[in-house]
């Protein structure tokens, strides 16, 4: 798909890391962040530093990430509410008594949720959608997953385009839904869209059969990834994991 994708074309060392390495590194990094004890404030500082370092190598401006990180907004709400609704001993913050445990829990969600979304954005900004699927394929994702994901990314724009055209046709004839109960035409449009998608699926399947489809997507050539590239690509995750290990080490 092309519309709304976060990928920012570039040729930085971060862009060039093989997608399977980047995927594993991103998952490992976020898991490291999530596993870090919430009181280890310094560790989150290191994590943020690592993320900033990756951005500077990737050549993606900080402002771009900041704008897109608002996707996390609903969770900020949970983080803000927790100090007031949680139990346990209370502390005074700006004259308001809040739960100490809730305050830490709110901080925990805010810090980890933010770092998590920033790491995921880094992955999305530096990896083409098709390479993400290719990375999953090389990481042995099941054949059905690769097929569904490949076709979904190819056709979501085509289907969204059909959706737009039916919407314009509807508005051209005076439709103006503002309440849910006026949205009947939209939902019936959804029914039509399902039928078109199904029929296109049948035609695509025929076109695939005609070119020898036997149940799995050809993976294409994959140059073997040397140990050095794994280490280089995984180094940010390694630093985050080290910070976690030190923070979680029982003293």
């Amino acid at each position: 798909m092309s519309g709304g994708v976060l990928y920012r074309p570039g040729d930085s060392p971060v862009h060039r890391i093989p997608p399977q390495v980047k995927l594993l590194a991103a998952f490992a990094a976020v898991l490291g962040v999530v596993a870090t004890p919430r009181e280890a404030f310094w560790a989150f500082g290191i994590d943020l530093f690592v993320v900033l370092a990756v951005w500077s190598v990737a050549g993606v401006p900080v402002g771009w990430f900041a704008r897109r990180a608002v996707i996390e907004a609903p969770f900020v709400l949970l983080a803000v509410v927790l100090p007031f609704v949680s139990g346990g001993p209370r502390v005074d913050v700006l004259g308001v008594a809040v739960s100490q445990d809730g305050l830490l829990a709110g901080w925990n969600i805010l810090a980890k949720g933010t770092l998590g979304v920033l790491i995921a954005l880094t992955l999305a900004a530096t990896t083409q959608p098709r390479d993400l699927v290719l990375g999953l394929q090389r990481l042995r994702a099941p054949a059905w997953f690769v097929t569904i994901a490949t076709l979904m990314l190819r056709y979501v724009d085509v289907i969204a385009g059909e959706l737009r055209r039916t919407r314009i046709a509807r508005i051209s004839r005076g439709d103006d839904p503002r309440f849910l109960w006026q949205a009947g035409a939209v939902a019936r449009g959804a029914g039509t869209l399902f039928l078109r998608s199904y029929e296109r699926g049948e035609r695509v399947h025929r076109a695939m059969l005609a070119r020898g489809w036997a149940g799995h997507m050809p993976a294409g050539p994959a140059a073997p990834v040397g140990a050095l590239r794994w280490v280089a690509g995984g180094s940010p995750a390694l630093v985050i994991a080290t910070a976690w290990a030190v923070a979680a080490w029982p003293v």
Binding site: L153, R154, W213
Partner: peptide, 26 residues
């Protein structure tokens, strides 16, 4: 080799090169 009527049905891979490689790879 069948070329179908709607190229959007025939071109189901993410890039042109991937699509052209699909048949011979299979």
């Amino acid at each position: 080799g069948v070329v179908f009527q709607d190229p959007d049905d025939q071109l189901f891979m993410p890039t042109v090169a991937d699509d052209v490689a699909f048949g011979p790879a299979n």
